[in-house]
Write a protein that binds this DNA or RNA. Sequence first.
DNA 1: CGGCATTTTGACAATCGTCAATCAGTGTGG
DNA 2: CCACACTGATTGACGATTGTCAAAATGCCG
Lengths: 246, 246
Amino acid sequence: MANALISKLERGADLTAEDRTRLEAVVRYPREVGRRQDLIHEGDAPSDVQLVMEGFACRYKVLANGRRQIMAFLIPGDFCDFHVAILGTMDHAIATLTPCTMVSIPRETITDLTMHHPRISRALWWCTLVDEAILREWLVSMGQRPADQQVAHVLCELLVRLQSVGRATETGYDLPLTQQELGDALGLSVVHTNRSLQTLRQEGLIELSAGRLSIRDVARLKEFAGFSPNYLHLTSRPNWDPQAAN
Amino acid sequence: MANALISKLERGADLTAEDRTRLEAVVRYPREVGRRQDLIHEGDAPSDVQLVMEGFACRYKVLANGRRQIMAFLIPGDFCDFHVAILGTMDHAIATLTPCTMVSIPRETITDLTMHHPRISRALWWCTLVDEAILREWLVSMGQRPADQQVAHVLCELLVRLQSVGRATETGYDLPLTQQELGDALGLSVVHTNRSLQTLRQEGLIELSAGRLSIRDVARLKEFAGFSPNYLHLTSRPNWDPQAAN
DNA sequence: CGGCATTTTGACAATCGTCAATCAGTGTGG
DNA sequence: CCACACTGATTGACGATTGTCAAAATGCCG
């Protein structure tokens, strides 16, 4: 499977062969982490930045009342804690949802990339801003879409995101999440998440079992969800010449 | 009233006198915009970046069914569309909520600041990451907090944010939003927003009338809301020496 | 087979939305 | 000064969505 980080960054800026080589070097020493392991806790100030190369992870917060909100699904190519280099401490926790392959990048490497490699720096900015756009869309979903459309929407989003790093076919992908985890992400109870999934099945929109999602009619699912991929900014970057900026 | 942008950036990085002078120059030509004016539409690709110097604005999206979700309140010192320089097009719209004083910054100025002024660049990164943290906290609120706590939480957040740019006292501030606008931000109906505010009043936590909010017991309101300001990252930045990165 | 996590179902309750009416405040024109 | 219109806040009645609790069914793994 291709290097998900590079696939992703290529969408944010035109990298040169040298940029790619440099990035290859950065992700050279992967490590394996089991399922449901905390990677970073709230309040931590880690010195390395972690990157998901394989598997699913999530950002989450647990409230005093014990309720958990998952705020992002991290898939191959996603940074866990890029912010820490600038904000200092984590304001949320990160955990794996499945067994994952992770890479640690020293903070100095990040600083070097952002200071001396304008195309990579720009691509990293792009990643951060897309993450923010995804958060906004989740907020829209939670605020304004009924539960079944919300579920449909996140399934569409994962389809597009996983496709963009070569982890999904045209119509399906491995979805190794429990309904509890899905519900924690959508602000729904397990029971209601389950019933929403039933609706999608009964509508003939999806098949989901044993961790495998097959979308029976992608166009119809997207329409049902009100999904428009523009917020993922996968196409039509503005032209930009790093030399012109000097 | 002090320059809100500089107050804000100072929290993200140690600026030099020269940095401050440069920023002063950037925000020199303000313009006035009336209440409830669209500043940027979804799909726009503006060439300037806009900045709120005075007043309240918001990010929002309108769905096909006509429902609106406000995804951020923009207060003095906040950038409207910093992303556009890198993402190309707006994936959401921005409008004023009150009469506003705005400043336009050419995209080239932004590029110059980010490329040649490491402390300012870092401060801008800081702003983006804090915006993202605020979004995450809104997501937590919408997903896991009941309506009255949600209202209390956003009131606490605005208290702290407005204080940090000198627009709030220890216990209150001008809140020129209608309950409809508040509800659109929280994913609640007007009616339910109203009833949640009543609860807070009856609990003796706040007084709100004629656009002025007085918090009768800040500590108790924060406790009621489950508010912890850590996600705003107003204190304890990591030490960082721009020279060391070279 | 047994044990455990996960999914599914049913019954019921709580939260929240919708609709519609009323009330309060503000500004305008006569 | 008052009638009027308009916006926003508030209230009541009711219904829909979603949550909670508890139990049963299913699937997976040793």
